[in-house]
Amino acid sequence: MFEASLAQSAILKKVLDAIKDLLNEANFECTDDGIKVQAMDNSHVSLVSLELRSDGFEKYRCDRNLSMGVNLASMAKIMRCSSNSDKVTIKAQDDNPDKVSFIFESSNQERISDYEMKLMDIDADQLGIPDTEYSCVVKMPSAEFARICKDLNQFGESLVISCSKEGIKFSTSGDLGSANVKLAQTTDADKDDAVTIEMRSPVTLTFACRYLNHFTKATPLSSQVQLSMSDEIPLLVEYRIGDMGCIKYYLAPKIDD
């Protein structure tokens, strides 16, 4: 028996919006600790790692560890049937379920709807990602990061991110011309619009702008985003999901031939 309830479906809708364009399907691994998803996109360039801790749910019960293979487009269709303020309960009866139920309850309890979704068998590769001490860790407003990725995507396919003590610079060039956006570290680190940089050594890396734009679909989840970088290893882009977990995106760098 698996059962997990959230007071408002909005958070689950936002989580799904943050991953459904990158991934077609994924295994939701449910344990007593919570729900985890780790999946690569089809081209093996990026990876999504999602964690929702059990203590962040209004109600959470997981008698046995189970893996639910989910078609994310199907789940998104079902989640769109809920109102943002609905309470949502995810329920699977068996230890090895072939279907999962979503129950939406309006705040006044006058409307209750339930949707059953077929599960899939997904044979997915899992990557072991070691704990890494990155050369640069940048925290910045998530809306600013989304704006930069969107603006610079018009100029070129590749985005160069350079981080030093002075700040972080995003650069691109293409047929139209070139573009640079520099952000300096701000003085007040506690504010939502703060830019903070922890640096061991300066870093310059090149990434496919298209994937960065996909990652920014998580912007509604958090006012801040954290970028962790070291030379010649994948970028880590991390958004917190309130106090209940986080969504991490890893993106393989482009390296000179």
Binding site: H44, V45, L47, G128, T206, I233, P234, A252, K254
Partner: peptide, 14 residues
């Protein structure tokens, strides 16, 4: 032109 790498070049399968 820089070449796009595969994530599996950085992280091993488990």
């Amino acid at each position: 032109t820089p070449i796009q790498n595969d994530l599996q070049e950085f992280y091993a399968l488990v």
